[in-house]
Structures are given as structure tokens and as C-alpha cells.
Write a protein that binds this DNA or RNA. Structure first.
Lengths: 123, 123
DNA sequence: TCATCCTACAACCATCCGGTTGCATGTCAA
DNA sequence: TTGACATGCAACCGGATGGTTGTAGGATGA
């Protein structure tokens, strides 16, 4: 499991913080597309789309492959997984906190019901 | 499973695209902290940290609860899960593409080995 | 009441970001 | 070779962002 450094994490979240870029990722996840093909899908100028693609590429979310005069972009699934893993790790922190509270409650009060509905306040 | 609208997704990814803010989330995920306590952890000014907290709150990643004269911040785990789910959904797109290619290959060539090592190029 | 602490917010500044237009380069097909 | 298409990049612009300092208000405790 590849761990994201701070710089990379900054870049990846930054890259995903734009709906056009998220949409591009969605599209090239399904099939590789040239920059022109992508540009045709949006209202903005070709250059704008090209810049979005560049941002995604710098963040490692997509990569390009030359085919003739086109540059076909495809998603880098592993990087998406890395982000997901990072969030999993965060959630893990929370879970361990819940466990800690559980233990605390178990040690104090007389046997309550099941296990920690008090700590399970977050949906 | 709560689905993120584009505006919310923009805000959440944006909020996470800063290492200080990610660190704040990590901390308040483990235990609720007042803004002052958080501010003490970083080099920057109190106001800067307070603004970071405000960004996280606007994005729905944390919420605050008044306790006396302090404002204790705690993480909103559900929102973190929403982001993770969004990435899962993306990965799902990719998986379905792989399945599609699998089916294509199965229909064409004579029985190859197991299933699609050709499509499994992405780690 | 009054000094103190915690928080919020406004104003300001440098930089970044998302968009534009224009130009240069590369590759293909006649 | 030449025209057309695909891409990349620089320059520019307005608005957002991340930081600063300063001011003000609410809650606490003596």
C-alpha cells in the first residue's frame, strides 16, 4: 500500500477539488481519451481543459500515452486507491478512539448493555 | 450512504488539500480540542488556525460545541466516510471497465488463462 | 465589577487558481 | 512540401486563499 507524502496529498486533494477535474477522472477511468476528445465535452476553452489535464497528471491521478499525434489520458487507479487508503487510515484513528472510550466505560460503570452506544453517537 | 453534491465535494476536497487542516482533522478525530489548544500546536498565528477550523467547519468535516468559554472541535466521521465512498464509486467505474474488457476478451480469443491478466495492468 | 481568556472577524497583502487569447511545435495525410 | 489537426505553453486577468495584525465581544473567576 503506497503511502502519500504531504506534498503528494496536497496535490491530489487539490486536483480533486474541482468538479471538472473529477469529471475528467471519471471519464478516463472508463476509457482513455485524448485531450481534444475531453475538451469537446466541456464549455470552456481547449487550453483550460488542457491545463486541468496537466494538473491531474502532475498530481499523479492520470497519465498520458502518445498515440500518433494524440495524447491519450487514462486514470491511474493506484493513486485513487492511495487517497482512499488515507481516508481509511483517518477513520481508523476515530475507531481506535471509540475502542479506547469503550474500554474506559467497561472499566468504570457496572455492566451496561451490549457495547458503547454512548460512543457511537456519530451515525 | 450520503452522496456528496458537487458543491460539497468541492468544499471537502478543497478543505483536505492543506496539510495543516488534515492534521487538525487527525487531532480532533482522536479527541475534541478547543481552538486555542489547536492553535498552540502550530507555528502560525491564532487567527490563521481559527480560519482553518472555519474552513473545515464550512466543509462539514468538523463541528464545534461550546463548553464554557471554549469552543471544542470534533471531527464529523460521516463526512469523511462520504468522501471515501465517492472514491470507492470511482474505483467501481474502473472495475466495471475491466469487467467489460474481460467479457470482450472472453468472447473473442480461444479460452485464455484464468481471467484477464491483460486488463489487470494497473497494479 | 474588572481583568483575563477564548473566540470571531475585518482589513490588508502576496500568491495561487481557473479561465481567457495567442503563438509555437509536432505529426499526419495529400 | 504543405495544410490541417493536436498539443503545449506563455502572458494576462479577476477572484479565491493563506497568512498577517488589530479590534471587539462573550464567559469566567477573583
Amino acid at each position: 500500500m503506497k503511502v502519500l507524502l504531504d506534498d503528494q496529498a496536497d496535490a491530489v486533494f487539490q486536483a480533486l477539488a474541482d468538479r471538472t477535474r473529477r469529471d475528467i477522472v471519471r471519464r478516463v477511468l472508463v476509457e482513455a481519451l485524448s485531450v481534444s476528445e475531453l475538451a469537446a465535452e466541456y464549455e470552456m476553452s481547449f487550453a483550460a481543459v488542457q491545463k486541468h489535464v496537466a494538473v491531474l497528471e502532475r498530481a499523479g491521478l492520470i497519465s498520458k500515452q502518445r498515440v500518433g499525434r494524440e495524447q491519450r489520458a487514462h486514470a491511474e487507479v493506484s493513486s485513487i486507491r492511495s487517497v482512499r487508503d488515507m481516508l481509511d487510515e483517518l477513520e481508523g484513528l476515530w475507531r481506535s478512539r471509540v475502542r479506547r472510550i469503550d474500554a474506559l466505560l467497561a472499566g468504570e460503570g457496572p455492566t451496561t448493555l451490549g457495547r458503547s452506544e454512548a460512543a457511537d453517537d456519530n451515525r
